[in-house]
């Protein structure tokens, strides 16, 4: 299951200095709630992505703590004011203690 986890990030290209931009992210994950029963009537154990931390050039800009009520393939969007070019770094953590990372460069408009 953990092998299928695929993070995706959507960032507008070449924002102006000081512009507030929308960051969208989606990670492929079934988000097993721990409530679902399989066809044989057995409860499928809980297995979710439970946290996301986002930094920009090393500074924390956004974090999320997620519960089983978050839909499969968790999607989130949030905003960021960009004052400089740099790297947006995402780190998701799951119930198995694994970490999934992804980065996206942002270059200010010339």
């Amino acid at each position: 299951m953990a092998d299928d986890i695929k993070p995706r990030i959507r960032v507008p290209q070449n924002p102006k200095k000081g512009e507030v931009i929308e960051i969208k992210t989606l990670i492929t994950h079934p988000m097993e709630s721990g409530q679902r029963k399989d066809a044989a009537g057995q409860t499928v154990p809980r297995s979710i992505v439970n946290a996301l931390n986002v930094t920009y050039n090393g500074k924390p800009v956004f974090a999320a703590k997620l519960e089983p009520a978050i839909s499969a393939n968790p999607y989130m969007s949030f905003f960021l004011r960009v004052e400089e070019s740099g790297t947006l770094a995402f780190e998701w953590k799951d119930d198995e203690g694994k970490s999934h990372k992804s980065e996206q460069k942002i270059t200010l408009a010339a």
Partner: peptide, 26 residues
């Protein structure tokens, strides 16, 4: 109205620029 009430908690900073988050909920 779900099995447990928790959904999510988000932390924002002045760098967020705009206090808006979007999520998808069961």
């Amino acid at each position: 109205g779900n099995p447990n009430p928790g959904v999510a908690s988000f932390q924002l900073t002045p760098l967020s620029g705009k206090a808006e988050v979007q999520l998808r909920v069961r």
